[in-house]
Design a protein around this nucleic acid. Sequence first.
DNA 1: GCCTCGCTCCCTCTTAAGATAGAGAGAGCG
DNA 2: CGCTCTCTCTATCTTAAGAGGGAGCGAGGC
Lengths: 207, 207
Amino acid sequence: MKTKIRVVLADDHPVVRDGLAAMVNQQADMEVVAEAGDGDEAIALYEQHRPDVLVLDLRMPKRDGVSVVQRVLELHPKACILIMTTYDGDEDIFQCLSQGAKGYLLKDAPRQEILSAIRAVSEDRPYTSSTVAAKALQRMAKPSLTQRELGVLQLVAQGRSNKDIARRLSITEGTAKTHVKAILTKLDAISRTEAVAVAHKRGLIHL
Amino acid sequence: MKTKIRVVLADDHPVVRDGLAAMVNQQADMEVVAEAGDGDEAIALYEQHRPDVLVLDLRMPKRDGVSVVQRVLELHPKACILIMTTYDGDEDIFQCLSQGAKGYLLKDAPRQEILSAIRAVSEDRPYTSSTVAAKALQRMAKPSLTQRELGVLQLVAQGRSNKDIARRLSITEGTAKTHVKAILTKLDAISRTEAVAVAHKRGLIHL
DNA sequence: GCCTCGCTCCCTCTTAAGATAGAGAGAGCG
DNA sequence: CGCTCTCTCTATCTTAAGAGGGAGCGAGGC
């Protein structure tokens, strides 16, 4: 028998970790070697165990999924990371995959799909369901927001006025308006409130 | 030995169901008798098995948690329902508990807390962590929105203009403004965008 | 050097949003 | 019956938001 696929889990919900661990350990060809409850722990445990696959949630305390992907791949370019999350916004998907994650799947996926995704990723084969892949492709056709625009968008989403945003960012109200207008154009929205709705759906912001 | 606590699980994520099932079945005094993947199924399986405890997720396909609570308690006033979700908005908590759910806890709760919550609820004792209970109390001090206002809020959150909202609801723009104004006052917000942010945080709307 | 992009600032103009105040119809309730 | 609440509509007024322009300046790529 071949050596088992060694898996590290990272998710802030104990229930989900238990569920995944139970599923994985039932399989003859894989085992869970460690479980992390936040982003920092995920990186530390990857270092310590050097697993074949890192299964990663996106929204976690201390450090979010995208940044964990970035950091782990910086340290170990050959790392095989599988994202497993409830968020299906095209921005999240695009960010993770373009950072170098090997797979992305949603928590409502059936057991079989989850297991075969782990196997695929462990062999360095990318795994992405057709719906998820479609969103990543959709995202590529859309214009990206600049750092500044993302910062402004964040404040808009909190309900701040242009004047308020200008004060917080130490720019003039006119400039704030310029940024907001650019955001509206890129997100194809008529009003700031619609922009927030679109941005939220796409995963550009997380309220 | 006493008879085991019979549990029905309802959650749209197979992983979570597996996790809960693993945790529960490891205990000597409880067992999972059925698992549901959506709201309708949850009601049907409750009918079929009449478990001691129904562990329920809030956001599910077909029928949402609050409405499942309502329906099950309508059919079986003595039903013991434990809400288990990621949503910690005061509105969700308040709705569930005031409908008659016996417990409410968050998915990031540790294993021990989850198990003791199930035991408490099975004996008809209410279980609510202090943070959750605090939110329910906070909510009681706040003004409620009327049905109409909730409908308008929904449209505001989608980014619709007052004129647009008026057209969709077959009322005048002035009336739409009146409703929006009332929403702003009740949510203590200055602008509609802030109102959406507040409403989302409180669980009044789910984008 | 030239060009593009991101960030900043400026102008005008129109429209939407929000503050304020008043009022009537219908439902439900003590 | 009066009281309260919800929903509806009215009107006026001020301010914020958004459309549509143009423009300078520094960084980085070709």
